[in-house]
Amino acid sequence: MNLRFLRYFGLCAPLLMLGGCSTDVFRLFHPTGPVADAEYRYTLILVGVMMLIILPTLALTIIFPLRYRKARKAAYAPDWSHSLGIEIAAWGVPFLITAVLIYYSFNGIYAVNPYNPKILDSAASTATAPLKVDVISTDWQWLFIYPDQHIATIDDLVVPAGRRVDLRLTSTSVMNAFYIPQVAAMMDAMPAMYTKDAFLVNKPGTFTGFSGEFSGAGFSWMHFATRVVPTADFENWVNQVQASPKQLDYTAFQKLAQPTVNIGAKPSYFSHVAPGLFDKVVQAAMHGVVYNVPDSLTKGVADDEGKAGAKAPAHS
């Protein structure tokens, strides 16, 4: 269904002008890949359906006060306060609209269900095995582990184009949310448990990922690069990272998970990632392992970010 023209509806037009006449800024108008496409399509459908009732109501809210002002001496019915027909319509029309909305909402839930998006069931995306990526949010960085490749990165998610990516997400400490506006459904990363997310992007491109759930001092810097690259480039990149001198076992991970503000979201790369690291992190959180945020990072109203970051490591 092509409903793109709806983009220019109502609110959007002034927004576009404010945005300097370019729609590039509006990431959600540029969905990439089947999941984001579907989300965008549902947005247009639902907004379109609602406009059928919201716009007329809005119009009447403006028209009636203008038309029935005292000065205009329009028709006046001082006692009229009831009409069965209108009241039935007042309940019935929203009811119908709501029914339609619920119908599309249900469809949408299963289509883009982050655990298992129906929209990705097509042949193209099941041809190759999905790429597995385990995502751990720490205070305050994103660690991406590629369990099959035994590599890991910080704040740099690189995936091959045209291949489904299956994510598992957890957190070392507090809640976070994994969010790449143009690409994948937002999904929370929580300590002591894991959630799932999945996406697929067909064409190479670069995107920005953000953390969606506030998590403390370094939250604003928890954005990460997302690079979708051709399969060959991906293999190359994996090989490069596999040669990285930095290695990641659980002990190294514990150092890394100490609260740090990564100003500038600078990436790092690790080879030889210990197998099962992700599960171990989940288990550890269940057993009460916490990475205390030092008081200097929570109380230092007058501290600047740099100093706060420097002060961070202090073991629990």
């Binding site: 959600l28 989300e39 919201i54 109501t57 809210t61 839930i109 969010y179 459904a185 969606g212 759930e213």
Partner: peptide, 30 residues
Amino acid sequence: SITGIVLLLVGGLTGMMLSAPAIDYTVHNS
């Protein structure tokens, strides 16, 4: 009061958008 109704309509439109998970996944916490 009239302004309140207008705001209610705009807030209602966007609230109903958020109540559809397919949309909420893209704008939750934004």
